Amino acid sequence: MATGDGSGGFAQFATSRHQALYRYAYLLAGERGLAEDLVQEALTKTYVAWKRLDDSANAEAYTRKVITNTAIGWWRRKSWSAERPRDDVPELAGARDDEDVTARLWLWEELRALPPRQRAALVLRYYEDLTETETARVLGCTVGTVKSQTSHALKKLRARLGPDAVLIMEMVVAK
């Protein structure tokens, strides 16, 4: 919530939401350094727009939209199909056994192979548990586009992972 000059409300927002924003950026980018850059860029743009944002819900959606659009822009400008260094998936807290970790790593690699907007739609819908309307707001598109991006992404996952792709994804995300 904006204060007189906006800096107090922004500082509270940035501090309280940083971890969730970083997690979202990491799931989109797959690299810690790039995720940190995305969050920093998004928070800078959010600070500039802070006076226009009515409340923290608008700020959250705006910041996630900036993260998404910035990531997609970076992917378009770079050759993302070329081999490049990347982080390994971090050790998962609460992983029960090697099979659980293997399923997560397997799904992670398949998600990384999806186009950026499809990956963003899946992360927002299934991992962040946003509604179609909230996802559309973050992505800056219509609900129909969210539905089609999600549908296309799930179709690609089913083709690569088999008919149990959605069950695998739900199992992995639920843990």
Rank of each mutant, 00 (worst) to 15 (best):
Asn58Glu: 12
Asp5His: 13
Tyr126Asp: 10
Ser16Leu: 07
Pro85Asn: 02
Arg96Trp: 11
Asp164Leu: 10
Leu27Asn: 14
Arg112Pro: 07
Leu34Thr: 09
Glu110Thr: 09
Glu91Tyr: 13
Gln40Thr: 09
Tyr26Met: 06
Val39Asn: 04
Lys155Thr: 15
Asp164Gly: 02
Thr46Gly: 03
Glu110Ala: 11
Gly144Tyr: 04
Glu41Pro: 01
Asp55Cys: 02
Ala35Cys: 01
Pro90Cys: 04
Arg84Gln: 11
Val173Pro: 11
Leu161Trp: 02
Asp164Tyr: 00
Glu110Tyr: 08
Leu130Met: 10
Pro85Lys: 07
Glu41Lys: 09
Glu110Ile: 00
Val101His: 02
Asp88Gly: 08
Cys141Arg: 09
Ala113Cys: 04
Val143Ser: 13
Pro115Glu: 00
Lys78His: 06
Leu154Asp: 03
Thr68Val: 11
Glu109Ala: 06
Tyr47Arg: 14
Val143Trp: 10
Gly73Glu: 02
Leu34Tyr: 07
Thr46Lys: 03
Val39Leu: 05
Gln19Val: 12
Asp100Cys: 11
Pro163Leu: 01
Val123Ser: 06
Val172Gly: 04
Asp5Trp: 12
Thr142Arg: 06
Thr102Leu: 07
Gly8Leu: 11
Leu43Met: 13
Gln149Cys: 15
Ala71Cys: 13
Val173Cys: 02
Pro85Gly: 01
Arg77Ser: 13
Gln149Glu: 14
Glu128Thr: 04
Arg52Asp: 10
Asp97Gln: 00
Asp37Glu: 07
Val89His: 14
Leu38Ser: 02
Met171Tyr: 13
Val39Gln: 07
Arg77Gly: 06
Pro163Met: 08
Val138Glu: 11
Ala25Tyr: 06
Glu132Met: 01
Asp5Gln: 08
Phe10Glu: 01
Asp98Trp: 05
Arg86Ser: 03
Asp5Gly: 13
Phe13Asp: 01
Leu107Cys: 03
Arg117Cys: 11
Trp74Asp: 05
Thr68Phe: 15
Glu170Ala: 14
Leu92Cys: 14
Ala159His: 13
Lys51Ser: 12
Ser56Thr: 05
Ala61Asp: 09
Leu28Phe: 15
Leu53Met: 09
Gln12Lys: 08
Tyr24Gly: 04
Lys65Thr: 13
Trp106Asp: 09
Ala20Gln: 15
Asn58Met: 12
Ala20Met: 14
Asp98Asn: 02
Ala25Asn: 10
Ala49Val: 01
Ala25Leu: 05
Glu99Thr: 09
Ser16His: 11
Asn58His: 15
Ala113Phe: 05
Thr68Gly: 05
Val101Gln: 05
Arg160Ile: 03
Glu170His: 09
Gly30Ala: 11
Glu83Tyr: 00
His152Gln: 14
Pro163Ile: 05
Val172Leu: 09
Ala95Gln: 00
Met171Thr: 10
Asp98Pro: 05
Lys51Tyr: 08
Arg17His: 14
Glu132Val: 09
Arg84Met: 04
Ala93Trp: 04
Leu111Glu: 08
Glu170Lys: 11
Gly6Ala: 02
Thr131Tyr: 03
Arg17Ser: 11
Trp108Ala: 10
Val138Thr: 04
Val138Lys: 00
Asp87Tyr: 03
Ala174His: 02
Ala57Val: 13
Ala61Cys: 14
Tyr26Asn: 06
Leu28Asp: 04
Glu83Gly: 04
Leu105Thr: 01
Thr142His: 08
Val143Leu: 05
Pro116Phe: 00
